[in-house]
């Protein structure tokens, strides 16, 4: 019946309909393309600027391709640029960030996993309240804890050190990782744990043999989220470290804010790229998981 009807009225209407669709598509792809260009522009500017010699930057257009491609700015940013009075480039700070981010990611993810497991599969009276306490930690404006944390790190002998930063990132990272794992484990059927209990497995055995092997996706989400957050952190780095112990974001900011002499914009951009590359790489390789981390705390279900 429906078929017969649609075949009765041919050509004119269907052609105009097709045209309408085509015009409609233009209104969809047009804005999307414009936005894509706008979003890519800063990255483009960073890359081309970092590849230009300084003279070309002061003489030419900042958006065009470099006439002479040079890696001098990258070299300088990596191993020569001055951060404060030390002219070591970003390299030692890049290493600092690695030394901070790897243990912090591993610890916070591991702790979050076991917390999530307990809060879903071994619920005890008050478990929801505990979860609420942890959850608020995700939304803590860190200014509210900066002074006590600075004092405490001093008391613990961790002030200005990388282990101190690891501690801070783990402490506040637990809130996020617990949220990730809890929300993931909630969707695993409780019968799985029950079956394992009937099979004779205990608390740790169930976690290790049954739950963890099913959690690879959320482990990746958690690691990526924590990696991005901790690598990109600036507030804790600038508040709790100084000089040679700073993470890369702090060092980058120092390079950029040097005001003496002729401003080396190409070095600034190369330095910014160096600081951005690890998280960008992670994003490119595992963007899907990154998005899941972003939306984990936001949309239900």
């Amino acid at each position: 019946m429906a078929n017969a009807l649609s075949q009765q009225k041919p050509t004119v209407e269907s052609i105009s309909r097709q045209n309408r669709i085509r015009i409609g598509r233009l209104f969809i792809y047009g804005p999307l393309a414009v936005m894509a260009v706008l979003y890519l522009m800063p990255l483009w500017v960073m890359v081309v600027t970092s590849l230009k010699p300084l003279d070309e930057i002061y003489g030419g257009s900042f958006i065009g391709l470099p006439q002479t491609v040079t890696l001098d700015a990258w070299r300088s940013a990596w191993s020569q640029a001055c951060i404060g009075t030390e002219c070591t480039g970003l390299r030692p700070y890049f290493v600092n960030s690695l030394l901070m981010v790897i243990p912090a990611v591993v610890l916070s993810t591991g702790i979050g996993a076991i917390n999530g497991y307990i809060l879903t599969k071994w619920r005890f009276p008050g478990a929801n309240f505990v979860f609420g306490l942890l959850l608020f930690g995700c939304f803590l404006p860190y200014q509210a804890i900066l002074i006590p944390m600075a004092r405490t790190l001093g008391l613990l002998g961790l002030a200005g050190s990388i282990p101190g930063l690891v501690f801070v990132h783990v402490a506040y990272g637990i809130c996020f990782t617990t949220l990730f794992f809890r929300n993931y484990f909630v969707s695993l059927p409780d019968e799985l744990t029950k079956a394992a209990m009937v099979d004779g497995a205990g608390f740790f055995r169930i976690f290790w043999s049954v739950i963890l092997p099913t959690s690879i996706p959320i482990i990746v989400v958690s690691c990526i989220w924590q990696f991005t957050q901790i690598w990109n952190d600036f507030l804790f780095g600038v508040s709790f470290t100084s000089g040679g112990n700073s993470p890369i974001t702090v060092a980058l900011n120092n390079i950029v804010n040097v005001t003496t002499g002729r401003k080396q914009y190409n070095v600034d951009m190369a330095a910014a790229m160096i600081a951005a590359i690890p998280t960008l790489l992670v994003y490119i390789v595992a963007g899907r998981y990154f998005v899941r981390g972003l939306t984990a705390g936001a949309v239900k279900g």
Binding site: P189, E191, L192, K194, A195, A196, V198, S209, P213, T214
Partner: peptide, 12 residues
């Protein structure tokens, strides 16, 4: 021994 509604097979 118990058989569950969702079977509860260990997925991995």
């Amino acid at each position: 021994a118990m058989v569950f509604q969702s079977y509860a097979l260990y997925p991995t």
